[in-house]
Amino acid sequence: MEVLQFLQPLACVKSLLRHGYPGVSLPSWFQTHNFPSLMTPSYINADGQESSSVPKITDLIIDGCENLSSLEHIIHPAFVPVLQKMTIKNCNKLVSVPAGRLGDLCFLQELEVQGCPNIYCQCGLVAPSPKRLVLGKNNDWRRYHTCGNLADNVDCCSLAYFSLSCNYLTSIQLQKWNLPAVEELQISTCQFLTSIIGHSGQLIRGTGDVRAFPSLASLTIEWCETLSTIEWCETLSTIDDLLAEEYLPAIERIHVKCCSKLVSLPGERFGNFSSLMELEISGCYILSWRRGFVLPSSLQILSLSCCGDISAWIPSCLEILSSLVTLRIVECRHITSIRGNLWSTNLTSLENLVIYSCVDLASIGGENAISEIKNVRINGCPKLEELKQPMLRGSYTTS
C-alpha cells in the first residue's frame, strides 16, 4: 500500500490493470486527468470527483477487490461515456451496484458479474444496450458462481446472449425477465434452483400475444442438480412453463443435461416446436416419460443419453424424422428393438448413428438394415448379436 501511494505512471499509459487491490480507496494519483491516453482495460477513481479530461475507456475490469463495497462512484456516464464492456468479479464485500444507472451507458455491449455473493439491487438489472450478459459464471471451479440478486429481475431489451450460473438462486420467475431479443439462454450450475415458473405460476394458454422469449433459438439447462418435480405431484414438472410453444415460438436447440433429480419433462410438447432442429437430453437418470415423447419433423440432431426409461416411445417417436441427420442413443436401458425398415423408409436423411451401452437392445434389423448410413458406431450392447461389435464406420473409425 505504501509503495502504491508513491507510484507515478506515465501519462502516455493506454492500459492499466490492478488486480486484488486491498485498499478501501484508490491512491491519490489515480485521477482520470492524469491518464489522457487511457483506453482499455482500466479502473476509474472511486472518489466520484469529475475531471476535465475523460479518458476513452471501453473496457472496465474490477477483479478481486475484497474490500470494495460500492460502485456508485465508479459506474457513472461522466467517467465512462463510451464504455463497451464491464466485468465485475470476486468482490466478496460488494453490496451496492447502481444497476439502474447502467441504462445511461449507451455504448455498453457486454456485462459480466461473477463471484459477488452480496450484491443487492432493489430496482433490478435494467440495461437496454448490452448484447451479452453473464451472471455468476466463473471459470475458476474453486470459487462460487454468484451474482447476488441481479438475476431476480432482468430487463435487457437488446440482449442476445444470457448465461446464468448462481449457487444461491432457488427459483426463476419468468414474468420478471424482459428479454425480447435474447437468442441464446444458458442456465447452468444453479445448485439450489428448484423451479422455473411462468406467469403467476401458471402457463398462459389461448392468448396469441404470449411470447416470453420470441427470439430465443438456443436453450441450455445443465448441472442444476436440485431441479426436480414437486414431490406431491409427479406429473407437474418444474420447467413445464418454460418448455412451452407459447414461451419459445422460435426455438431451434434444446439441451437438458446433468439434472440428476429431474423427474419429468413435457415430452409430449416437443412436437409443437416447428423450428426445433436439435434436442439433447442427457444425464437425467430418473426421468419419467409417461406423458409421452413426440418429436417434430424438423429435427436434425437427436441425442438421448442416460435419460430414464424412454423405451415406450422408441422407435415410434422416430418414424416422422425424415430430416434427422444425427441420432445418438447412449446408455438407454429397456429399449429392446428397433425395426429394420425404419432406417431406409423413415430416417432417409440419417448420416450419423451412435448406439452405445444399451444393454437390453437385441435387434436393429441386422447389419444390412443400416448399410446406407455413412458414419456408424455401435458398441457395448451385449444382447445385440446380429452384428459384430464394436461396429465402426466412416468418421467414427478414428473417434
Rank of each mutant, 00 (worst) to 15 (best):
L347S: 07
S344R: 11
N346R: 15
H334Q: 13
N346L: 00
V354R: 13
T326H: 14
A369R: 02
T336W: 03
I320D: 15
R328M: 11
R339I: 14
L350K: 10
A362E: 12
W343D: 11
G366I: 12
V354W: 00
H334V: 14
I329T: 03
N352M: 03
Y356L: 15
N368F: 04
I338A: 06
S357G: 04
A362N: 08
L342F: 01
Y356E: 15
I338T: 12
V330Y: 01
I364S: 07
R339S: 12
V325T: 13
C332L: 10
T336G: 04
N341K: 11
S322I: 06
S344L: 09
I320L: 09
E319K: 12
S349M: 06
S337H: 10
G366V: 09
W343I: 08
L327W: 07
S349K: 11
G365E: 07
T345D: 00
T326I: 00
L361M: 07
I320W: 01
V330Q: 08
N368R: 08
N368A: 12
S363A: 10
S344V: 15
L321N: 09
N341P: 10
T336F: 06
T336D: 06
L347R: 10
I364K: 09
V330P: 02
T326C: 11
L327G: 08
R333V: 10
S322P: 03
S344Y: 04
W343N: 12
I320Q: 15
L321G: 07
S349T: 02
R339H: 14
T345G: 00
C358W: 05
Y356R: 15
V359L: 13
Y356V: 13
N352I: 02
I320P: 02
W343P: 08
T336L: 14
S349I: 01
V330N: 05
L324T: 08
R339D: 01
G365I: 06
Y356I: 15
I320E: 15
N341V: 01
L361W: 03
V359M: 01
W343A: 11
L361R: 05
I338G: 03
G366L: 13
L327V: 09
R339P: 08
I338C: 02
S337A: 14
G366E: 02
V330E: 05
E367C: 00
I320C: 11
N352L: 03
L327I: 13
S337T: 07
S349R: 13
E331P: 05
I329N: 03
S349E: 06
S363N: 08
T326Q: 06
G340H: 02
E367N: 06
A362M: 14
I355C: 02
G340C: 10
I355E: 03
E331C: 08
L321T: 10
T336I: 10
T348P: 04
E319H: 12
E367Y: 07
G365P: 04
I364Y: 03
L321C: 09
L321D: 13
A362Q: 09
L350T: 15
R333E: 09
V359R: 13
A369M: 03
I335W: 01
E319Q: 13
S323H: 11
S323M: 12
